[in-house]
Design a protein around this nucleic acid. Structure first.
Lengths: 339, 339
DNA sequence: GTGAAAGCGCTAACAA
DNA sequence: TTGTTAGCGCTTTCAC
């Protein structure tokens, strides 16, 4: 059942078996072969608990998500996972379960239990207590998406991304641009939506365009929210409604496209729509977007904490790339609408 | 740093401290309070590895997913997670990473390492080797979605679900019905798509409707795949194309709706579309569907393995409920098209 | 290249 | 109600 059995069967010592199993160089090749063979025959299954106890390393890292069912989180999680598996580490998922998930207990009960060697936090806003509790473990930590005070983070430069999107619209001749963003209902880092909105507002101001107060709409970072926002925004006559909508996420942009379709608006003839993310569905419907790569961000984050676990100093991570992907949902405003 | 410190500070024994920390009834309340207070002051963080070693229970369960970025898996994962957290267990995520993810190593390297007390497999097809390796650990196991030989499973009755959907269409008067399903590119249980397709074919046959060979289309269980399938299926004239499409998943149905919109078809006037799942986006676009609740299935699965870990016998789980949700994407076929 | 022995931090009899 | 004593299964000096 354990290493001991292999030892008795082979007539070796536990120590040697342990070394052989790990393929340490100080073991004769023949011994290694023999041990491995016997281990196989016996159906030996190593115990990571025992190894973890002995070494102090669990070979596992925790990933904390505010909620699980968001495109960005799922993708990022996949990236973290890929890199962890390559490194032979396990992934322990801590899902805060949205605003109703009882965060406190989840935090102390699990994340702190030395079950993992490091933590990757997805777009989290931590309060004082949470932060100090996490510090307790002295684990390497990194945040994906949105800056977090006192922690390294990987993610796009949100204001710049917003600027890129807005400048695309401005470049096409749009002046009447609305913004759909808003607070994610369920725990997204407060910073991200605000930073994108600010990027929008400032770029517009820089171009000398005013933004009516009603054109900063909350789309709750979801498809449904985007559809609702779009319905409100696009309900009016051609003179009243924007000629373009900038959405802080593709999921919302898809919702706006849906709303436009329902209202009989042609895209991009009557309306241009641009999003942020690079969601797969966007490609199918021709959504112009500023694409980022959350999976890559996840991989970067994983590598960063893994390195730190191995004793490397925590160097800051450069901003993740984001590129404008022009498709068919954006085009010049109709003649005569331009002003 | 450990339990020992608390022991020396309080003047108690390690054993009592251990008991106090766990709030065992055999400990004086005053002692419990004292121990907890000191533990707090010392910033004590328990080691699950040590506890696991001592008890043989890791208080963690593994969830194996073929790929992470699918609606069903994400939802089910959320359900499993919710129940695990309630029970104070951690969730270790094993992502096979699709067809290219190197499955074998992932399997033996991680899942077998006694890191978890039980396993929840999401829609997995296991081969012989995999199954026997998993058996090695003697862990309680359960499958969500699609029957798996020799394992308990929770999920909907796929043939029945298909029948429900098709009968809805038949009831509306449709006779020219196409099916979009197909093998998931990335590891979905082979059984599920086939069982749904068979349910479709048999129900059609039972109603005396023939299904042209070209009307069983592969939508790859994805949005993009559905859109492509729809484009192919709906390209012809009104006489050539089906009056209704039954999709084995909502994501594909959404793709078909998109294709229909692009081709200028009115739904449900020119075409009815029905899916399976209950995807949130479906509600927004009025997609009729047979809704299931993967989150509930996840919770059920988690409870089942948790109970088995606690020594309960593995009783079979009844099929998960699925209900027809009629929205606006289905209606009677146009007069004259009926035949 | 291999072995002996001492833990890692906790829990679980068995006593007291 | 609390303490004593063994481990859980592995890794790791330090010898040989």
């Amino acid at each position: 059942m354990g290493i001991q059995e292999i030892a008795t069967v082979t007539g070796l010592s536990k120590a040697t078996v342990s070394r052989a199993l790990r393929g340490l160089p100080s073991v004769a090749d023949t011994t290694i072969d023999q041990v491995r063979r016997v281990a196989d025959e016996l159906g030996y299954v190593p115990s990571s608990a025992a190894a973890g106890l002995a070494t102090g390393r669990q070979r596992a890292v925790g990933v904390v998500v505010p909620v699980i069912d968001r495109w960005f989180y799922v993708k990022a999680l996949g990236g973290v996972d890929a890199e962890l598996r390559r490194a032979g580490h396990d992934l322990v998922l801590y899902n805060l379960g949205g605003p109703d998930g009882d965060r406190d207990r989840a935090f102390r009960r699990s994340m702190l239990r030395h079950r993992v060697d490091a933590l990757v936090l997805l777009s989290l806003v931590l309060d004082e207590t949470e932060r100090s509790e996490l510090q307790l473990t002295r684990h390497p930590m990194i945040v994906i998406g949105g800056p977090a005070p006192g922690l390294r983070n990987v993610g796009v430069d949100d204001p710049a991304v917003a600027r890129l999107a807005v400048e695309h619209l401005l470049g096409l001749g749009h002046r009447r641009i609305a913004y759909v963003g808003g607070q994610d209902e369920a725990g997204m880092n407060v910073a991200v939506p605000y930073r994108r909105r600010d990027g929008f507002v400032e770029t517009m101001r820089g171009a000398g365009c005013s933004v009516p107060r009603g054109w900063l709409v909350d789309g709750r970072f979801s498809f449904a929210g985007g559809a609702e926002a779009g319905t409100v925004l696009l309900g009016g006559s051609a003179d009243e409604r924007p000629s373009a909508v900038f959405c802080a996420s593709d999921e919302m942009a898809l919702g706006v496209l849906l709303a436009a379709a329902r209202l009989g608006l042609h895209v991009p003839g009557d309306l241009s729509v641009i999003g942020i993310d690079g969601h797969e569905h966007g490609a199918v419907v021709g959504l112009t977007t500023v694409a980022q790569d959350p999976e890559a961000q996840g991989r970067t984050a994983a590598l960063a904490v893994l390195a730190e676990v191995d004793g490397a100093p925590p160097v800051p991570v450069p901003p993740a790339p984001a590129t404008l992907v022009v498709r068919t949902s954006t085009g010049p405003p109709r003649e005569g609408r331009r002003r």
